[in-house]
Design a protein around this nucleic acid. Structure first.
Lengths: 203, 203
DNA sequence: CATTTCTGCCAACGGCGTTGACTCAAGTCG
DNA sequence: CGACTTGAGTCAACGCCGTTGGCAGAAATG
């Protein structure tokens, strides 16, 4: 059930190879597209390799041949952490609000959907270490440098904790309190909590 | 490989039943004990039903006969939310600190271990709704009643979000920043963030 | 004692992620 | 050109998974 042209000459077995050839085949791209859609919609454990293969119109063993394993495919399609780049940039005095505006704008977008899927697969050690690294790269690291006052590293770490809490609750809340609520309300209230960690406590 | 006395007369097939009989059999208790230990140590997806049965010294099919399914057994052994009862009791002025003291005291205890396992199984819809209900019962409900000022429900909800964030990070942090650190440090810093939601913003 | 109830055992089901052997087209090079 | 290598795609199978249904037999019930 793939909509693309089945008669695409590139789909023929033993597709072109060589120097000038693109590094991915038709089947690889179909697998990646199907995996992105299915994992985002139903999570890691809710989608089987055979299902991805069927949606992509290929043999199940091709998935592991091209991507190594189900988990590697999952990380390759869901781990889009450049979406969080620059999350903690901006003036410190209003950074709490700024971070939340960015997160809630991202909401419903591919980045947050992917993060929800990653959170659902937190049992997997490799997913866990990816999330650790992502938080370190995009939140703790950049923020700790800019904070003033004592406990900079810890405060930055706990800002990441608050962000994780929000993303986690967007995940466990299928419809409820947070989602569907006017963005401004959540924003104003939670921004105070974030700002309490950003402000220099001795000032 | 069960250490208990195999010759325990109660272990004989067709153990006693009837009015005065305890509502569980030897096998049921062995399964429950093995499941508690294994799920707490390695999470939902890291433990198979057959493994629990082997550790309990019983046939795998007995697990589903007595507990219905793997997921039901998991919830029955890990869902110990009475451990969070009274979490948000105490004077509002220092409730942020008080809540964190309780949580970090619980840390390393069975309650937090079980919650880590539940968080790891957040993909399962029934686990998700259990966690929602638990937060509503022990945090959002009792706290919203006591808060003063605007947005009481939302502020209580976001306190639960912050608690979830902390528990989530205790889960994804296998060893690092938060765990192993002097309890007082995390406590003092994060308490400010919690208190920012508890205090009446108009006061 | 006859009947019901329920524990526990066994074998099997369909589905899972993954692997290895194989075919065959495309590219490489003597 | 022809031999060789490379890698995509196919097929069948492996071992493990959660779960189910049939069966034996002891305990409770009358």
């Amino acid at each position: 059930m793939h909509t693309g042209p089945v008669t695409d000459p590139r789909a023929a077995p033993g597709a072109r190879r060589g120097r000038g050839r693109p590094p991915t085949t038709h089947a690889q791209e179909a697998i990646r597209a199907a995996a992105s859609r299915l994992f985002a919609a139903r999570g890691y454990s809710g989608v089987s390799v055979r299902e991805v293969a069927a949606a992509a119109g290929v043999d199940p063993s091709l998935v592991n041949r091209h991507f190594g394993s189900k988990e590697a495919l999952f990380l390759e399609t869901m781990a889009i952490d450049e979406g969080f780049r620059g999350l903690v940039e901006g003036p410190l005095e209003e950074l709490g609000r700024l971070v939340l505006e960015r997160l809630l704008t991202l909401r419903e977008g591919a980045v947050v959907t992917a993060y929800a899927a990653l959170i659902g697969a937190i049992d997997r050690p490799e997913v866990r270490s990816y999330l650790q690294g992502s938080a370190a790269r995009h939140v703790v690291g950049p923020l700790a440098e800019r904070l003033r006052g004592p406990d900079r590293e810890l405060r930055a770490r706990l800002v990441a904790t608050q962000i994780n809490g929000l993303l986690f609750d967007l995940r466990i809340g299928d419809d409820p309190s947070l989602v569907g609520r006017p963005v401004g309300e959540v924003l104003d209230v939670y921004a105070r909590a974030l700002q309490a960690l950003i402000d220099d406590p001795t000032a």
